[in-house]
Design a protein around this nucleic acid. Structure first.
Length: 638
RNA sequence: GCCAGCGUAGCUCAGCUGGUAGAGCAACUGAUUUGUAAUCAGUGGGCCGGGGGUUCGAGUCCCUCCGCUGGCUCCA
């Protein structure tokens, strides 16, 4: 007799030792068909595991996140089985489930995506066979014997504790695995191989290069197709593609990883910064600017020479070593230290749009997302110890305000002291607690990443969520108790004594280049009016109307709008089509009627047309819309 | 940096087993003077990423460099 306690508190008695499947069937056959694993006293195990004593059981179904993870892990096994059938000499290493699917690292001759159909064919055979997946437990000695010709598995085994080792078997295939797995291979019906790449064994470049084959799997074909559609949509939104199509920026071999911004890209850039300055002024910031090149002594003082040199561009000028700044902070320290400060000056919020250079590995460069030269919307906040919480809260509120303007959600993560770091234990503790207490007051949930902090202090990272649901780390708030010390920064307190200020580094856009890239993908190139590179296209319907159209454009120029006139001798249809394809939010067609009546025909990007809009109404509407930085298209009254 | 794939006209791409480069769009010229997503015709345009090699002959094969794209511990 075994008593099973369900998550809702109900208890049910079973004869003998039921399996998870028996328990599920006790609820209903239909429910049982959707079960893939179970949580037995907090541990995820196979559905066919026998329950031999009283326990708490939660059945994991195809609807649960853990269920999908189990499926994908099983999918990795199915793929490995197929590959071993086709490439018997292949040696398996590890094959985990990952966020978007799974992969298996295999030591074999290079394969390419052209080999996928063949592998997928074999995978289908295994799925159709509905091979039962069985767990088998053996001693470590037996496992070592079984894997005597499998060097990677042997290495893995040697690092495991002595005792019971579990294997999973399906048909002729056996793999060392802790499980759990779905009951049989028939569950893996919606599977697709995605890509292949190289990966080192144990991520160690000195060790064997393996083939990492990625795939993804879902419980239904529909979910798989929805995922593939998502991937397609993300491809369409690729900022490199849109950036080229809209003539926003380019890259050149002459400066790999360093973007060149074109006039239209600069329109967006300037709109971003104009808005940024407005918000920062309102939040009590001042702005500074420091040189991009500073001498070695400065970097030794800041600690960068010891901790960050491999990423810094250096040069020798008049026998003195210089480095191009990878961060703005040391320059900011010098500005603060250039004159005495009173406690009455604090907090001092000094922002800087700083151009930094970092020598990233050539292989990691990627459009605007990973570059070697970029601008940070940096700020250094100098304060007294009792101002920590308010200042961090102030930054979090500014972050929230700015991201919401773009329709971006976000979540927070706290990172603590890494192994390679400067400062004392006491400083780290004080700094970390300061961030925690501010987060608690702020009230949103946050995740903790142990050991992920910067070398000079703990940090709060802000991860935004874009229109496709993808997350990107942009903002960061870092408390630094080390740099003020190294630069001997002080302020005069009420007691007329010198005190050490505390400092926050923070960015909100992060890298402006990268943030712009994210926005391109977030908006799919269809920027809201206030940041559109061309806000309105003016299209005269024939050559005779060009002079009048130019007059209209001149009025708009005066009003501060960014407009373009298409005076080519082309059909109106063509001009409209091209403006639409360039995502110009407003299209103004100028014909005889508009000239005579002094009105405008306004076509918005959604294809809606409003005739007879007066110039005054148009400008009032557009300017108010821009001023409010609205995300949706403006609506015009007659 | 490492592995794989890629680099042909401004853009997107074709060019079989080596035989001397082609399309669509764009640009330019001319005609058309257009009322809400492509008017028609013609013309020009290429150190086939750079360098070296094999060959009678290289966009095509080999080496090397540069660049781009994807990946490079979510660890049985």
């Amino acid at each position: 007799m075994v008593n099973i306690t369900f998550p809702d508190g109900n208890i049910k008695a079973f004869e003998n030792a039921p399996t998870g499947l028996d328990v599920a069937r006790g609820i209903s056959e239909g429910f049982a068909r959707n079960c893939v694993a179970m949580e037995l006293d907090q541990t995820l195990v196979d559905l066919n595991r026998e329950i031999t004593r009283d326990a708490r059981v939660r059945l994991v179904t195809t609807k649960d996140a853990e269920g999908l993870e189990v499926l994908r892990h099983s999918a990795a096994h199915v793929m490995a089985q197929a590959i071993l059938r086709l490439y018997p000499e292949a040696k398996l290493t590890i094959g985990p489930a990952v966020e978007e699917g799974f992969y298996y690292d295999i030591d074999m001759d290079p394969v390419s995506e052209e080999d996928f159909p063949k592998i997928e064919e074999e995978i289908k055979k295994i799925i159709r066979a509905k091979l039962p997946i069985r767990r088998r437990e053996v001693s470590k000695a037996q496992a070592l014997e079984f894997y005597r010709d499998e060097p990677y598995k042997l290495e893995m085994l040697s690092q495991m504790e002595d005792g019971t080792i579990s294997f999973y078997e399906q048909g002729e295939f056996t793999d060392l695995c802790r499980g759990p797995h779905v009951p049989h291979t028939g569950f893996v019906k919606a599977i697709k191989l995605v890509k292949v790449s190289g990966a080192y064994w144990r991520a160690d470049p000195t060790r064997a290069q393996l083939q990492r084959i990625y795939g993804t799997a879902f419980f239904t074909q529909q979910e798989l197709e929805a995922y593939l559609t998502f991937v397609e949509e993300a491809k369409k939104r690729n900022h490199r593609k849109i950036g080229q199509a809209l003539d926003l920026f380019s890259f050149h071999d002459e400066a790999a990883g360093m973007p060149f911004f074109h006039p239209k890209g600069m329109e967006i850039w300037n709109a971003l910064l104009e808005y940024w300055r407005l918000e920062h002024r309102a939040a009590g910031y001042v702005e500074t600017k420091t040189p991009i090149m500073l001498n070695r002594a400065l970097w030794e003082k800041s600690g960068h020479w010891d901790n960050y040199r491999e990423n810094m561009y250096t040069s020798v000028i008049d026998d003195t070593e210089y480095a191009i700044k990878p961060m703005n902070c040391p320059g900011g320290m010098l500005v603060y230290g250039s004159k005495p400060h009173s406690y009455k000056d604090l907090p001092l919020r000094a922002a800087e749009i700083g151009l930094v250079h970092r020598h990233e590995l050539s292989g990691v460069l990627s459009g605007l997302f990973r570059v070697r030269a970029f601008h940070q919307d940096d700020a250094h906040i100098f304060m007294t110890p009792d101002q920590i919480q308010d200042e961090i809260l102030g930054v979090l509120h500014l972050v929230e305000r700015i991201y919401s303007t773009f329709g971006l959600g976000f979540h927070l993560e706290l990172s603590t002291r890494p192994e390679k770091s400067i400062g004392t234990d006491a400083q780290w503790e004080h700094a970390t607690n300061g961030l925690k207490s501010a987060l608690d007051v702020y009230g949103r949930e946050y995740k903790i990443n142990e050991g992920d902090g910067a070398f000079y202090g703990p940090k709060i990272d802000v991860h935004i969520k874009d229109a496709l649901g993808r997350t990107w780390q942009c903002g960061t708030v870092q408390l630094d108790m080390a740099l003020p010390e190294r630069f001997n920064l002080t302020y005069i307190g009420k007691d007329n004594e010198k005190h050490r200020p505390l400092m926050i580094h923070r960015v909100i856009y992060g890298s402006i280049e990268r943030f712009l890239g994210i926005l391109i993908e977030h908006f799919a190139g269809k920027f809201p009016l206030w940041m559109a590179p061309v806000q309105a296209a003016i299209l005269p319907i024939n050559d005779d109307l060009v002079p009048y159209a130019q007059q209209v454009k001149a009025d708009f120029d005066q009003a501060g709008l960014c407009t373009e006139i298409d005076s080519r001798t082309e059909s109106l249809n063509r001009k409209i089509r091209e403006a639409q394809l360039n995502y110009v939010p407003l299209i103004l067609t100028i014909g005889g009627k508009e000239k005579e009546s002094g009105t405008l025909a306004v076509r918005t990007l959604d294809g809606k047309i409003k005739y007879g809009v007066t110039h005054e109404t148009f400008l009032d509407t557009v300017q108010a819309h821009i001023h409010r930085r609205e995300l949706s298209l403006p609506i015009f009254q007659d």
